[in-house]
Amino acid sequence: MATTILPAEKTKSQPSNWKNWIGVIPFFIFAILFLLLPSVRLFVGSFTNESGNFTLANMAELFSQKVILDAYKISIQVSSITALAGGILGFMLAYSVTVGGLPKSLRSALITFSGVASNFAGVPLAFAFVATLGRTGFITAIMKTYFNLNIYDKGFNLYSFIGLCLTYLYFQFPLMVLIMAPALDGLKKEWKEAAMNLGANTFQYWLKVALPVLLPSILGSMILLFGNAFGAYATAYALTGGALPIVTILIGAQIRGDVLHNPGLGFAMAMGMVVIMAVSLGGYSWLQARTERWLK
C-alpha cells in the first residue's frame, strides 16, 4: 500500500527512482496498446466530424436523436430493474445462508452455485431461457398443461423487455450473493447482543443497527449490478437477435455498418456508455469504502 511505505525506505529508493519503473514497463505498454489507445480513439472520435475537425455536434446529437435516447432509456430501465430485483433476491439469499439460520453446509453450496451462475452468461444463457420460457419452453408447457394458461396469449414474450430482465436476473442475483455474503459475515454478534440487552427486538435490531451498517454496501453492490447489466451485449443479442434496441445492441450495429450514418455519433454513444459505467464503478467503490469502516 502506497501510504504504508516507511520514510527510510522511501529515501533509500529515491536516487534510482526511474530504474524502479523498469519492471512495470511491459504492463504499461500493454495497457497503452489495448486499453488507452482504443479508449482515446473513441474519445477523440466522439469530438470529430466527418471532415476531421473538432465538433460538439456529436454530443449534442446524442441528446436529440430519438433512437439513441430510447436505447439509453431501455438500457437504463433493464439495468435498474434487474439491479434492484437481483439485489433484493441476492441479499435475501446471502442473508439466509449467513445469519438467517440455515445449515452451514448450504452456504458453500450456494456460493459455488453463485460463482457458476454469475459466469454462465451470453449465448448459452439465452438458449437456456429459450428452453425454459420460450414458446415451447418448459415452464410455458407446464403452464399450458396444468393451469390451462398460455402465457404468450396473456402478453408475455421472452424476446422482449420482460424476457430480457428475467434472463439478466440469472447472472445478477448470484453476483449480489457473492458480494453480500462476506459483508453479512462482518456483522458482529456483539451488536445484536447489545441491542437485545437494551430491549430491542429483531426487527428493531435490523432497522436501527444492521441495515444502516450494511446500507452503503447494499447500494454499492446494486450499482455494480447496474453496470454489470448495462455493459451486457451477448445475452441480449442472442436472445432478441437485436430486436430490442438497447445501447450495446445499437453500438454493435454501428460497428458492423454505420447505421447511425455518422461515425462520430457512434463514438459518442460509446463514450456515453463509458461515462455511465465509470460513474457506477466509482459509486460502488466509494460506498464500499464507507462500509469497510464498520465491517473490518
Binding site: M1, I5, W21, A31, L35, M273, V274
Partner: peptide
Amino acid sequence: RLPQARRIVEFITLMPFVVPAIILVFG
C-alpha cells in the same frame, strides 16, 4: 520495488468494468 505503482496498476486492471467488451472491440 514499486509499491507506489500499486494504485495505478490496480486501477488499470479494473478498467474492463468501465470499458465493456463491446466498447473494447469497437476501439
